[in-house]
Design a protein around this nucleic acid. Structure first.
Length: 250
DNA sequence: AGCCAGGCTACCG
DNA sequence: CGGTAGCATGGC
């Protein structure tokens, strides 16, 4: 019965892929330039289109975790400034971030907004990172690993479902689909979901529709699909809906 | 000058 | 359970 919308969902993603090309999420500014130079201008901001073997380092994974918290209800341009602040403050590792007094941490991430809340969240995430990163990298990636790690991550203060899924999908390449406000808007417009669908329902609906033959391919496809949805929504779906410009509805 | 941005917690009924 | 105020900066 959920297969009812699967075709529509997959067609929408495929169309976005053709229209927008490879996205290369999640951006990892501190890591990406070091590997494989390229002409792609987005690479300078940490995007790595067509390359799915990021992050490759513990620093890259921690940067994703921080970015996932900092971007909560915040434009990415502001997050970049905050991440750069962390880099300059030499606080882009769990240990060194935790050594920074919380008040100072807050002032460093000020451009990302909600800086007092987020300073507290970042500390909690850094503690989680110290306790879980090595294990997650070492253990075999599987549905079991995902279902084990996810509830633990969701208990961390400041980590809700979207932040957790972004960390698991992009930092640890575990096969979970990331649902955000854009996802709700885009697929709401396509009558695939409605405003009262819960996060979990939408996550499993899209996850089922977009699952691929292997775990590895599924992860890559989930990563790309989420980035494409954001790109599409930025172009066509303001908060004040304007379906007229949406080519998916043609 | 206002609206918006890659949400989450706490608290309400 | 679902609904909502509060959190805050920078860009357009």
């Amino acid at each position: 019965m959920p297969a009812r919308f699967s075709k529509r969902i997959r067609a929408a993603i495929e169309r976005m892929a053709c229209e927008y090309g490879p996205q290369g999420w999640w951006p990892i500014a501190s890591e990406v330039q070091r590997f494989a130079p390229s002409n792609n201008p987005r690479r300078l901001e940490g995007y790595h289109p067509g390359e799915f073997d990021f992050p490759r380092t513990i620093a890259g994974r921690f940067e994703i975790c921080c970015g996932a918290v900092l971007t909560q209800n915040t434009a990415w341009a502001n997050v970049r400034h905050a991440l750069e602040g962390l880099l300059v403050a030499n606080a882009l590792s769990a240990k060194r971030l935790l050594e920074l007094p919380e008040e100072q941490l807050a002032s460093v991430i000020r451009p990302a907004g909600y800086f007092n809340q987020k300073a507290s969240y970042l500390r909690a995430v850094a503690l989680w990172f110290q306790a879980n990163d090595a294990m997650l990298v070492r253990s075999e990636r599987s549905l079991f690993a995902l279902e084990t790690a996810r509830p633990i991550l969701l208990k961390v203060r400041g980590v809700g479902p979207e932040t957790a899924d972004a960390v698991l999908l992009y930092a640890y390449r575990l096969p979970t689909f990331v649902v955000d406000a854009y996802t709700m808007r885009v697929f709401g417009r396509l009558n695939v979901v409605d405003s009262q669908s819960s996060y979990e329902v939408v996550r499993s609906l899209l996850g089922d529709a977009l699952r691929q033959r292997t775990l590895e391919r599924t992860v890559e496809y989930y990563q790309e699909a989420h980035a494409l949805i954001v790109e599409h929504a930025k172009r066509h779906h303001g908060r004040k809906s304007d379906a007229t410009k949406d080519f998916l509805l043609d």
